[in-house]
């Protein structure tokens, strides 16, 4: 074989090799691009698909935890308020039983009767109280009546209820036909304050 022929033969082979390599190399590049694009798209799809569900799930679980948490706070505060009012109750019982020397219960009782009398605005009133207080009022009826009339500036007919009330202390006053009633019991006054003072008491206790 001549050198020239050999040379041409080698050139043909060289070109074929080069071309083949180029074709394979380009295909490899293209294949990599296709796979890379698919992986990126798959990640976007996964994230988007799950994103909404995760957001919804998070809102539900965290929301529920916050709700439960707030409930426990409310319950704890209610319990603290309840215990506070229980203590108030106990103290009122001591005051009504004359065990707390800081308070002159008889004076308190008189003021309660006077306030109720003014409120009822009748010349004849009937007074109800617990057993102990009924006994006290009964024993001191004349002096109480006298003092009331002096302070009110008019004559007053005062009768005592026969049946005692089951109350901590204080009085209930009716007019004769029971069309008017003035609840000036310690229990009633405390009950009336429970709602109105709740906000102030909560501030003092919990802040």
């Amino acid at each position: 074989m001549s050198d020239a022929i050999n040379s041409i033969k080698n050139e043909i082979k060289r070109r074929a090799d080069e071309e083949s390599k180029k074709i394979i190399s380009n295909a490899d590049g293209e294949a990599q691009k296709v796979l890379h694009a698919a992986k990126e798209k798959a990640e976007r799809i996964r994230t988007e698909t799950v994103k909404t569900e995760v957001t919804t799930m998070r809102k539900k679980i965290i929301g529920s935890a916050q709700l439960d948490g707030r409930k426990t706070i409310i319950n704890a505060k209610e319990e603290a308020l309840s215990k506070t009012f229980d203590k108030v109750n106990e103290k009122l019982i001591d005051i009504a039983n004359r065990k707390d020397r800081k308070f002159k219960y008889e004076e308190i009782l008189f003021k309660l009767i006077k306030e109720a009398a003014i409120g009822i605005d009748e010349k004849k009133i009937v007074v109800g109280a617990n057993k102990k207080d009924l006994s006290y009022i009964s024993s001191n009826l004349s002096s109480i009546k006298r003092k009331l009339e002096k302070e009110l500036g008019y004559k007053l007919e005062l009768t005592i209820m026969k049946e005692p009330r089951y109350i901590i202390g204080g009085i209930i006053v009716y007019n004769v036909d029971k069309t008017k009633i003035f609840n000036n019991t310690l229990d009633g006054r405390l009950m009336g304050l429970k709602d109105s003072m709740r906000g102030d008491i909560s501030k003092v206790l919990f802040e």
Binding site: F85, K87, V88, L92, F103, L190, L205
Partner: peptide, 11 residues
């Protein structure tokens, strides 16, 4: 203190 405050209001 809270108890005393409430008592004052009641009375």
């Amino acid at each position: 203190k809270t108890v005393d405050r409430i008592i004052d209001e009641v009375l």
